[in-house]
Amino acid sequence: MKFKTSYLVAAVVAAIMIAFPTFLGAYPLNVARSVMTYMALAITWDMLLRSGQISFGIAGLFGLGSYASILAVLRGGMDPLLSIVFATVFSGAMAYALGFAILRLRAMYFSITTLALMEIFRIVIHNMHDFSGGPEGVVLPTVIFGGNASALYWLCLGGLFITIGASWFFEKSKMHLALTAIRNDETSARSNGVNIFKYLLITFVVTSAMQGMMGAIQVQSYGFTAPDTAFDANFTLLPLAIALLGGIHSTVGPMAGAVLLGVAAEWLKLKIPYGHLIVYGIIIILVILFMPQGIVGMIRRAGRAAGRAGKQTGANHE
């Protein structure tokens, strides 16, 4: 019964999101795309975090995907929509190859290596002038779907839905058991048949592919990119902040965080054009200090406490 209600809520929310372009103008759709992109990235970061691995390489895969897509169109004459698929596969394949090296690392060694990878991608693109356009970047002759705001919105929404679907699958399948076991206790996981490397590699490849996909969708929607745009540190930092604010180790946490921080960011940008990032930083510090479980974690805990209190008073009445 409970499950059916939550499915119904999800279906209604999805329907409303699909219908947004019928009653929203170009500007709010643009903001929505930005929020959805960060939401998807936050979800993918959280998916890997469920195994205990903290990645700082989101921007690296995002940038890689956007370059793979734009260069496939410009240099290879690929269809723009197909180039998004290509970029997704390319980012996943890259993660597969790199995974053999970096997934042997743990804790800060893993984190720092992912950060370094992002830098390496950026520098390589920066220096491949003839192929990548160098520091000036590259421009597409036309934006995908002729720049139609509704179509661009739906494209981005499609990417988000794929990400949410993957994350939901990870929560409901044996991936949940594998990743949580790895996060809690690798020794215990190993002696209960969990092939740790295999599950880390699957997760790393899937999340990297989706990060690349969101990069490709973004670049096709804007029609240009440059190393400093594609590998912008914000694509690493904002998803982290979003997931931490919303609540980690779940799909709904990053979703809630993205809506809240996304709306707050837009509003702050209008109110304090030069200082909005400072306020942003303060929000993140306060969240880490006072709500380490994030919003969803706090609501869950309050719900559990209320449930216990309810049971207790119920028992007293009897």
């Binding site: 058991l177 996981a189 209960n192 969990v194 180790h249």
Partner: peptide, 15 residues
């Protein structure tokens, strides 16, 4: 070595 973020039943299911 309990897996503290899994329920008791899930702990046993892992094996």
């Amino acid at each position: 070595h309990p897996l503290e973020n899994l329920k008791v039943i899930e702990n046993v299911m892992v094996g």
